[in-house]
Structure formats: C-alpha cells, structure tokens
Simulated assay, not measured.
Amino acid sequence: MSAEAERRHGGARVGRAAFSLVLIALAGAVLVKGVAFARLGAIEWGIERDAAAGTAAPAAPARAEEAAQLRAAVAPFLDEAGLRDKARLLSFRAGRRLDPPAANGVEEIAAALAVDPVEPAAWMDLAELTWPALALRPTSMAAWDLSRLTGPYEYAEMMRRARFLARRWMFASPESKRALAYDIAFLRRFPDPFLHSWQQLLAPLPAAQRRVFLEEVGAAP
C-alpha cells in the first residue's frame, strides 16, 4: 500500500472513531435526558394522583412538606433544554400545594402559562399578584376573566374567583359581575359544601359591602 493510501486509510479510521465517540456521547445525553424526563413524569403522576385522591390526600402539613420536596426535586431542571417546560409547570403546580401556597412571582406564573395556557389557578395567581399595583388592575381583572374561561366549573377555582371579586366588587365590570352571579346561582344548586364556603366568603366583608354584593348577585336573603 502506498504512503498516500495508508494516509487515507488512517484518516478514515480516525473519522470512524470520532463519529463513534459522537454517537456514544449523544446516546449518553439521550439516556440522561430520558432518566430526568422519567423522574419528572413520576413527580407529575404523584401530583395528579394526590389531586384525584381528594379527601384521601395527605393532611395539609404533610402535603406541604411533600410539595416543598417536589419543588426542590425539579429545581435543577428549570432551565434545562428539553425539560424546562415540564419542570416549570410542575414547580408551579407543586407550589399551589404549599401551606400557604407559594407566592409565585410573575415570572413563574408566566413560565407556567407558557406551557399550559389553560391553567386556571395560574390565571388567578396572576390576578391576585397584579391587583395591588394600580396600573396593573386591568391586567388583574383580565386574568380573572381568563381563569373563568379556562376553568369554568372547577369548584376550588370558582370559589377563589368569588372571594376575589367579592372583595373588589366596586371595581368589577358589569360583565364580570354577571358572570359571577351566574356561577353563584349554579353553585347554590349544590348546597354541600357550597354553603360553608359561602359563609366563609361573606364573613369578612363589611356589612354595607356584603349587602350590595348579595343584592347584585341575586343572593340576598
């Protein structure tokens, strides 16, 4: 074999070896991503399992401790390509289970909504978080509307929207007031557990505000 042929042959061997190393590295990266994705999937399954369990779910302190552990578990993946969307959504959902719920910042809420724009709890978090800033109150009320649009018949979110708007009744638009009146009329068909939740909602309202609120939602005694 000539020197030129040997050189070409050697170059081909080096090329094949380099290509093999690249394939091995890629396979390793895929394996690592796969394991991480499986871990996130297990966390997601755990959250969904507890949500489906309802009254059989752990007590609040244990649930809050588990939620803190879940947020810590997904934290390393919040900025990792290919995993960050699921990680950010899971972190947000786990934060809702803390006692009290995590004070999710606008960035965390935005990250969750970018992954799942039909998450009503995220829209209500945004409504509550932006309300104190006078300039953002239109955003807050728009987020309230979007929570109702994305989760119209989720009991926990229905009551959360009712509490929010009842305390800010004078600022609500006629459309939002009509929407809440409709929701309350719907909920009153199911007195248990609505009546207890309703009493808790009304109790902290000033008497004059409570009277106006009850009259305008058509629930006056």
Rank of each mutant, 00 (worst) to 15 (best):
M1T: 15
M1D: 14
S2M: 08
S2N: 15
A3Y: 13
A3G: 15
E4M: 01
E4K: 02
E4P: 00
E6W: 00
E6K: 00
E6H: 00
R7D: 05
R13A: 03
V14G: 03
R16A: 13
R16E: 14
A18D: 07
L21R: 02
V22S: 05
A25G: 15
A27H: 00
G28F: 13
K33H: 15
G34C: 03
V35D: 10
A38N: 02
R39H: 13
L40H: 04
G41C: 10
E44R: 06
E44C: 00
G46M: 08
I47Y: 14
A52S: 11
A52V: 04
G54W: 02
A60C: 06
A62N: 07
R63M: 15
R63N: 11
A67C: 05
R71T: 09
V74I: 09
F77S: 11
L78S: 09
E80D: 10
E80W: 12
G82P: 10
L83I: 07
R84H: 11
A87F: 05
R88E: 15
L89T: 07
L90K: 06
R93Q: 10
R93C: 00
R93W: 01
A94P: 09
G95S: 03
L98G: 03
V106D: 06
V106T: 06
E107A: 13
V115L: 04
V118H: 12
P120C: 09
A121K: 02
A121L: 07
D125M: 14
D125H: 15
L126H: 11
A127M: 12
E128P: 01
W131R: 00
A133F: 07
A135Y: 01
A143S: 15
W144S: 08
W144T: 12
W144F: 15
D145H: 08
S147R: 01
L149W: 09
L149Y: 13
E154D: 01
A156N: 14
M158V: 13
M158I: 11
M159N: 09
R160N: 12
A162T: 03
R163P: 01
A166K: 03
R167Q: 13
R168C: 10
R168K: 14
W169C: 00
M170K: 04
F171E: 15
A172G: 08
S173L: 11
P174F: 11
A179I: 01
L180Q: 10
A181I: 04
Y182K: 11
D183R: 02
D183A: 08
F186C: 01
F190D: 10
F190K: 03
P193K: 11
S197M: 12
Q200P: 04
L201G: 11
L202G: 05
A203K: 09
P206Y: 03
P206Q: 02
R211E: 12
R211S: 10
F213Y: 10
F213W: 11
F213Q: 03
L214W: 04
L214D: 09
E216L: 07
E216A: 06
V217R: 12
V217T: 15
